[in-house]
């Protein structure tokens, strides 16, 4: 199997991903690496969902951290205050976030470009403010403690266990995403990105597909939010901040829009980079910004699609 085939989805891609996440822990010298790795995996799952909306559907959401935070708070409150089992709380939160995304998605996804960006930004900000101010329920800006995640009496405890939960979830999310984009539904969704009117005249209800993928990506974020809450044991409203939403979109764009594995790569890099740049201390944010600007200037399609195009060119030249 050559390199280009390895990068092609559904041939070797999924197997390669499973292999990488299985073997990665062998390189972790201590427990701290597990903690960072779990965050990378969680971000990757959110980005795989967000990429369906942004990369494939050609829409934008600057409020996705809001859905993540709603999932997290839903689980925290349902398990903590009402004693609901964690799995049921996760499912209930995901269903509620999905319903919310469906309802708000219908009117706002008629908007395009900057207007859609503004509207989704608004949703994210509203969620953030509500979590901050409804302190009776959410604990307010000080945050709220979250119980351990248990399945049938077994607790998922420690970063090692969480790593395998995150890894399994990521492989599952990537599999789902690859299936979807290569199905009639997924092609219709990509067609919406290519030309809305072109899709409509062959029978694609473009509005329906936009709302559907918006809802699906919100559910992805919510599920990860729930798991994140249990893993961290403590959450604050800032997990749903505007900055987090921007960070998620940046991960997708950096890794490569309309590339499921690109979204994973982008999420992993932007989760690890701040750790690697810690030695720059005060200049960390500047270096990070510089790397991102450079990537967008020299690889506007993102890391993975640019890499794949370069490989194709080299093969063609050879």
């Amino acid at each position: 199997m050559n390199a280009a085939m390895m990068l092609a989805p559904r041939t070797g891609g999924l197997a390669a991903l499973a292999l990488v996440v299985s073997l990665a822990p062998l390189t972790f010298p201590n427990a701290y690496f597990y903690d960072v790795a779990v965050n990378a995996l969680f971000n990757a799952v959110v980005c795989v969902g967000l990429n369906l909306l942004v990369g494939y559907g050609g829409q934008i959401s600057l409020g996705h951290a809001g859905f993540f935070a709603l999932g997290a708070y839903g689980s925290a409150i349902l398990t903590g205050t009402y004693g609901v089992p964690p799995v049921a709380a996760l499912a209930a939160s995901a269903a509620a976030v999905g319903a919310l995304a469906f309802v708000v998605g219908r009117p706002i996804l008629r908007l395009k470009g900057h207007y859609l960006a503004m509207a989704t930004l608004g949703i994210g900000i509203i969620i953030h403010i509500v979590l901050k101010t409804e302190s009776q329920v959410t604990g307010g800006p000080d945050g709220i403690g979250v119980d351990a995640f248990t399945v049938l009496g077994l607790a998922v405890a420690g970063d090692k266990a969480w790593y395998w939960v995150g890894a399994g979830l990521l492989v599952f999310a990537v599999w789902i995403s690859l299936n979807l984009i290569d199905s009639p539904m997924g092609r219709a969704l990509r067609a919406v990105h290519g030309s809305e009117v072109g899709a409509e005249v062959v029978g694609v209800d473009t509005g329906r597909y936009k709302v559907l993928v918006f809802t699906l990506s919100a559910v992805f974020a919510s599920v990860v939010g729930s798991l994140f809450a249990h893993k961290n044991g403590f959450i604050t409203p800032d997990i749903g901040s505007f900055f987090r939403s921007i960070e998620l979109v940046t991960m997708v764009v950096l890794g490569g829009m309309a590339s499921t594995f690109g979204a994973v790569v982008g999420a992993v890099i932007l989760t690890l980079l701040p750790q690697l740049l810690a030695s720059f201390e005060d200049y960390e944010a500047m270096v990070l910004g510089g790397i991102m600007m450079g990537t967008m200037i020299f690889m506007p399609k993102g890391l993975l699609p640019s890499l794949r195009a370069a490989l194709k060119r080299r093969r063609a030249a050879a």
Partner: peptide
Amino acid sequence: VFFNMTALENVMV
């Protein structure tokens, strides 16, 4: 045309 897709995918849409 859906320029983000292959020729065949265009027809399949």
